[in-house]
Design a binder for these strands. Structure first.
Lengths: 225, 225
DNA sequence: TATAAGAGAGTGAACGCTCGTTCGGTACAT
DNA sequence: ATGTACCGAACGAGCGTTCACTCTCTTATA
């Protein structure tokens, strides 16, 4: 109670502290994601952020605590960006034009946050996925929460057979993520052998129309030979 | 020529050398993939392999050379395994039953080689993808080479619209890989919210039948409500 | 209003330790 | 004798972390 009156300084100071931590974390992120956790020294981070080694330990008890701070910060930032992108999609998810928009959105989210994925990979190989594991549990529940109502409306619009709309959407989303991850982070320029536009086109066609020539009605409409 | 006669020892010795290197590389792989490149010391590798530090340098000029040897070895091993699995698939690729077999095969390849993927992630974050980048270029060309004839036969069997069989197959393959990678390496147990069997079932359904309720003939054949 | 006391951001030398790598050496097969 | 797989102490550099310190504000007291 009344802490704002008893300590008016904290409000001003906190802004400086946050600015310093921002500087430190920006520098740390840059180096960690390019050299890995064990390949990065506190001295490098200190030098790049413009602070002394000692001061780093005023803000973060250990090197790992600094790393964890980065994980939390960029996890939240990425989560917000993803939620924003998914929020802008209307309930016509599965129409080709809408999937094209989804692909473009995924491209932005993936290519604008390469360091988020690098952080994830660092955690996987150097910490046994200790800090990120929770992200991958209940992924579809998250999708359900964010897209639930709209997906139900989409589901009511057509025949779905045994296909679950939420699952279908998550799989399509994942396919786009994988495509752009390989293209950017793994430097597989045109890894599918065709330009991006064509690759996306093909993915959408596959997802919307399917590829099974033997499907119920198709066999009779086109010559098999 | 005649080196086998001039140097009979080398043949015998080489076997010992290969056995030693095998021991070293097995130990190195285990530690590298659990702690990253910079998080692993030559002393640890020496201890785990049962050799001295000095002897490691008789076989590998530097620590990075040892790492590169691992990359080449396991890249080849993984490539062979993948080729074997793909070779066993007959030319009815896109039938649900066949895709189910493909999913099972991908599951084996992914879950039996988690360290291959860890090595890849290490290279991405600690070496800027220096050693693995070439793997991701011309991926579909590789698929074309391995599956070419069979895919052409499959292509001749049905109507494909604008869909390229090779691309379709690669995308399906990638989707399965992604699914099992997330399940095993990223510990996202049932990350799609349903058991594996159901998830694979849904993926296959999506790929074979598509999900677009508005597709040409579907509206009239099934009740939309 | 002037001032002493306190809190805490920032510093960098120093500590104990581990790192990758080197090198003089042994043991043994040819 | 020659070559080589193997050893392990030693080297210089660099690591994460600590600590005694300064400087700048805020707050309490006179």
């Amino acid at each position: 109670m009344g802490s704002a009156i008893l300590k008016p300084m904290t409000a001003i100071k906190n802004r400086d502290v946050e600015r310093s931590r921002g500087k430190i974390e920006r520098a740390a992120m840059k180096i960690f994601t390019r050299q890995g956790y064990h390949g990065t020294s506190m001295r490098e981070i200190a030098g790049a952020s413009g602070f002394s080694i000692g001061n780093l330990y005023n803000h973060y008890p250990t090197k790992e605590d600094l790393f964890v701070a980065l994980v939390r910060k960029y996890e939240q930032r990425f989560g917000e960006q993803r939620a924003k992108v998914l929020g802008e999609i209307d309930d016509t998810f599965f129409q080709p034009a809408q999937l094209e928009r989804l692909a473009a959105a995924v491209k932005d989210v993936v290519t604008e946050n390469p360091d988020y994925w690098r952080l994830l990979y660092i955690d996987v190989v150097e910490f046994g996925n200790k800090h990120f594991a929770h992200t991958f549990r209940g992924w579809s529940e998250q999708a359900e929460r964010v897209l639930g109502e709209r997906l139900e409306k989409a589901a009511a619009r057509g025949p779905w057979g045994g296909l679950t709309p939420t699952l279908a959407f998550t799989m399509i989303y994942l396919q786009f993520v994988t495509y752009y991850l390989v293209e950017t982070l793994f430097r597989g320029r045109q890894h599918l052998g065709v330009p991006e536009k064509e690759a996306v086109n093909q993915m959408i066609r596959l997802f919307t129309e399917g590829c099974w020539a033997g499907k119920q009605g198709a066999g009779s409409t086109a010559g098999a030979e």
